[in-house]
Amino acid sequence: MRYSADAQDLLAWYDRHARVMPWRVSPTDRAAGIRPDPYAVWLSEVMLQQTTVAAVRDYFRRFTARWPGIRDLAAAEDAEVMGEWAGLGYYARARNLLKCARVVANDLNGRFPDTYDGLLALPGIGPYTAAAISSIAFDRAETVLDGNVERVMARLHDIHDPLPGSKPLLKEKAAALTPSVRPGDYAQAVMDLGATICTPKSPACGICPWRDPCAARAEGTAADLPRKMPKKAKPTRYGIVYLGRRADGAWLMERRPDKGLLGGMLGWPGTDWGEHVADTPPCPANWQDLGTEVRHTFTHFHLILTVKVADLPLGQSAGNGFFVEKTDFRPSDLPTVMRKAFDLARTA
């Protein structure tokens, strides 16, 4: 039974300082025999991919209030789930969320696999998420390696090889520390350590439970780690969105294709995004340029959108889009970039 002194020190720290999260079972409750809900662990881990805890909390609460179990989510309408996800970003996660929920509900009798390999076979679950769920929900001794853990391992072992090339070495170091006793608590503990003590800037080394064995602290290099390869400059793309409102208050809208950026999300008709843009409105109308721009940054590029608005007659054809009645339109269902355009048009 592997249970190193370092793991013991970290777990003792976690027992006192564990963050309180709506999806987490506290170490005290786990010790009393209360087990995590795999549905809650899975949902939170998918939401937390490339997203902060602060941003996820309210989304998690809304999702679990509306769809308290995996069968509830599996039975939900796609548009309702995509609308509830709006603003959280990385919308492929929401599409995969529904695919995974339906596989678990329909093919696995509503029960998540309790092993890394079984979880990895599900839609939208990659190596990190499979390790996190199997560890946190099922107490499997899997190695969890997110950005926080990478930073902790790089500093603990004073590893100067830059990311992403150093990932295999960092995972090897993390695996050597992962205990077979309380692996779920340990996984959350090492992530908490990176999020609250071993932070990217100004790490609080003086109060760290691993300050003594930390090689980077001894060498005075902690603040410089982990090293990363220089990022390439992001290109800028351009586009036009058209906000047309019918005389009865209905909005002309479209739903983006399932594949691609903002896939499956509600939005405004618009041009393709690229270096050069042709003005191609969705229907004939007196389209007026607001004279202002929407600026938004995605993972791989910056986007600048020109916003054009028009009043449309009652008999206007929707073309390739559709009209959303005034009473059914919810700006909160829009992804952030589309909501920015709406906010500009509303205040113009």
Rank of each mutant, 00 (worst) to 15 (best):
A285P: 02
R182M: 06
N286Y: 10
D185W: 04
E77I: 10
A55N: 14
R93D: 06
G263R: 07
C283F: 08
A318P: 08
R93S: 05
S202G: 13
D58A: 15
W13N: 05
V103R: 11
L122V: 07
A75W: 03
R71K: 12
G147S: 11
G244W: 00
A154F: 00
L169F: 10
T143D: 03
G33E: 07
D158P: 00
D117H: 03
L43Q: 02
L334A: 00
V324L: 15
L303G: 02
A187S: 14
A223L: 03
I159G: 02
S135E: 00
S202Q: 15
P27L: 12
R330C: 09
D146E: 06
K340R: 15
P183Y: 07
S202I: 13
T327N: 13
V20F: 08
T64R: 11
G110R: 13
L43S: 00
D258H: 10
G33K: 07
G184Q: 01
A285F: 02
R182N: 06
D107R: 14
L145W: 01
A32D: 08
D6T: 12
V103F: 14
Y14C: 04
K231G: 10
R95M: 09
P200K: 12
V309Q: 00
R339I: 09
N148P: 03
N109M: 13
Y90N: 08
D158K: 02
S4Q: 07
L48N: 05
D78Q: 11
T299Q: 11
I304Y: 07
Y128A: 11
T199W: 02
E254F: 10
D29P: 06
K231E: 14
T236K: 14
P213F: 11
L243E: 01
W23E: 01
T347P: 04
L262H: 04
L156M: 15
A79C: 13
A75T: 06
M191T: 02
Y186C: 03
W13A: 07
V149A: 02
G315W: 00
P168M: 09
M253E: 00
A131Q: 03
A101P: 04
C205W: 01
E219A: 15
E45S: 07
A31H: 12
R217P: 00
A233H: 12
Y3A: 10
C100T: 06
V324T: 05
A222S: 15
V46C: 13
D146L: 08
G319E: 01
R30L: 11
D72V: 05
T129F: 00
Y116I: 06
N96P: 05
K99W: 01
R140A: 09
T143R: 01
T280D: 12
Y186N: 06
L177Q: 05
V144E: 01
T280Q: 14
D114E: 14
R57Y: 11
L122D: 01
L10M: 09
L314E: 13
P235V: 02
T292C: 15
D258L: 14
P331G: 07
C208R: 08
T196I: 13
K99Q: 08
I207A: 15
T336V: 11
R237Y: 14
F301Y: 15
Y59L: 13
